[in-house]
Design a protein around this nucleic acid. Structure first.
Lengths: 153, 153
DNA sequence: TATTGTTATACTCTATAACTATA
DNA sequence: TATAGTTATAGAGTATAACAATA
């Protein structure tokens, strides 16, 4: 009798056909590309995705609390602390006490924070225009609609 | 003269209008939902996203090397080691020596590995059917086409 | 009692440098 | 010299438990 497997040699090509059947797989691969480009886009501003998102939300909603920020970013409260620490250390925002609730902070952007936020948002707009150049307006709104439906929003 | 900011109170609602203008934001939020559900789906099999993906690729491409697996998963080689370690420890795959290149391993699934892989893939199919129930066939293929275009593939 | 912010902690994913053994 | 696998390590992102101050 011969052995069940006589010679095992690596295949010349690797197939991911099974994984390709799943939308989640395509979402992950595509998002990885977008994320990598976004990280590079934010690097000159010394912002990460989380600090960028937090700064935009604080500029658009001045005075919001850390708990509100955590809810908006869908992140646990402990993780917000270091993000706000970093933005405050860089003097992009301030932690102000709320007179009506002395437990909470009201997060407000500094002038410098607003300025950096505007520059970063402009850079992200350019990054998106480049990354999604292959998509026409219909495809974009179609994609937003589909993604919103997936998220259940 | 009055102070520039007399009373700072948290807003009643938080707006993410600026962020919503970006496709990447919608991709991240939607993918987070998909990922969370996928993690829950794989938990009964004691598989994570990475070990699941690796197991599927090994079952579909028996004999592939760790370097090939790393390339297919778009992960650095060092990170593959612990994944393969875990799958081997659970006797779902075997590391076999390649006779023609004694540096490389040929990764082959065990019978048990093939069985678990089949069950996990079936569970992921159910998970996707539930998660994307709101999308008809056209929307799905549209989305795959768009995501592939974004990825540049 | 519940909530805000905080600390400590841990787990996952990802990436780089440097080593070994083979080629 | 180049490659396959490995080790050590470090940085992000995310999550839970427990605490002090305040409501």
């Amino acid at each position: 009798m011969s052995q069940p497997e006589q010679t095992i040699t690596p295949p010349t090509t690797v197939s991911d056909d099974t994984l390709r059947r799943f939308l989640g797989y395509h979402m992950k691969r595509a998002f990885n590309v977008v994320q990598a480009d976004l990280v590079a886009t934010l690097k000159p501003f010394e912002l990460r995705m989380l600090t960028y998102t937090a700064l935009v939300l604080i500029c658009d909603n001045p005075g919001l609390s850390q708990a509100q920020l955590a809810a908006a970013m869908d992140v646990e409260r402990p993780n917000i602390v270091v993000i706000v620490d970093e933005l405050e250390r860089r003097e992009l925002i301030n932690r102000t006490r709320v007179p009506t609730d002395r437990r909470a902070y009201a997060l407000v952007p500094t002038l410098q924070g607003r300025r950096l936020c505007g520059q970063a948002v402009a850079a992200v707009e350019t990054h998106e225009a480049k990354l999604f150049a292959g998509l026409n307006g219909d495809m974009r709104s179609e994609m937003v609609a589909i993604l919103s439906k997936v998220r259940g929003a």
